[in-house]
Design a protein around this nucleic acid. Structure first.
Lengths: 182, 182
DNA sequence: CGCAACATGTAAGCGGTTACATGATTAC
DNA sequence: GTAATCATGTAACCGCTTACATGTTGCG
């Protein structure tokens, strides 16, 4: 499933522009599916070319025209076909964990900075999720609630794990093995 | 941090061939950093070209020669520089969660199949992790233990979340909204 | 005065995946 | 016999990231 298919899915919720979709990628989808303008606009153009969406130009005063996209019947069929995949992937790519694998090559200060930054990022996500709950969550479909809850649970667990296990990363000398022993 | 840097890190633990590194990517790194031969072999060639590793040819009987790589001083410097990044990324790309966002467009059977397959994958990972604990974990550096524990905690939490919240994905009719209502 | 928000796009590049190519040995 | 393990690589492709390009309105 690529950016095109996710855009198609977002459009089942109502018409939207590329700019609107980008905001959705940045908010409710940010913790599991990133996409920038560089993938969204070409995706929408390709979908329009293939008859999956229809495009309506909406002129605006003082601002550039909006191009508002609507999903077509063919688009819905394509989306439903994509949703038939029984084994959708769930991939993690973590420079953080790769870095921690080599913690014994780092100083204590370096390790602590990395861990603090990670905890901060997860705290920021949890804050974002709390804002969804207190504002726009009421009309969400069950799937979106499930996914929000999933993100919250993961972020909390990650933060807890890092906080409770960070001590295990430091050797007894407390200086990291950059300090020669022999 | 790319495949090249991770290979360099793995080589701090001792010399290895591309084939050996692939096995490490498939085992202890599999839950957070994927890499196939198509990235590993070119990475090792580039590292050798840049003086980060040295290559030794080891002839074998009946099998192709092994190319065994050793990290150089320049390689170690390069790795330590890479480890100085205070904000290493931790990215999730999940077709699974994207799919679940649109669960209201799927039948109950489809959703259940997807969830079952996800639970199975996490159970397989937990089995793999348990095998590490009972076999080769003794001589692991603290960072590797931290990362293994991280993976275990995440997988357990994910599995639990899916099992405890799967009911929320089904609407009252129990047929999915592919069945027209009006 | 500068920055953020609004709004759309292109082009180069990068990094990784997939498929292909080869070939002996060992275990079932 | 047929699949898996050992062992290394290339080339085409794909999809995403990054940087660039343009221009107005409104806020502090």
């Amino acid at each position: 499933m690529d950016v095109k298919t996710v855009c198609l899915g977002m459009l089942t919720d109502g018409e939207a522009s590329g700019y609107d979709l980008k905001k959705e990628f940045e908010s409710s989808f940010s913790h599991f599916f990133a996409a920038g303008y560089g993938s969204i606009y070409p995706a929408l153009n390709a979908l329009a070319r293939d008859g999956m969406v229809e495009c309506r130009h909406v002129p605006q005063e003082g601002k550039p025209d909006r191009k508002v996209y609507t999903i077509t019947a063919a688009g819905r069929d394509h989306l439903l076909a994509a949703l038939e995949n029984p084994c959708p992937s769930h991939k993690v790519r973590s420079e953080f964990l790769a870095t921690m694998c080599f913690a014994h090559l780092m100083s204590r200060e370096q390790i602590e900075t990395v861990l603090d930054n990670r905890v901060k990022e997860m705290t920021d996500y949890l804050q974002l999720f709390r804002e969804f709950e207190t504002t726009s969550m009421d009309d969400w479909p069950p799937g979106a609630r499930f996914v929000l809850g999933f993100g919250q649970t993961m972020m909390k667990t990650m933060r807890e794990y890092v906080e409770e296990n960070r001590d295990k990363l430091f050797d007894k000398t407390g200086t990291g093995n950059k300090t020669a022993i022999g």
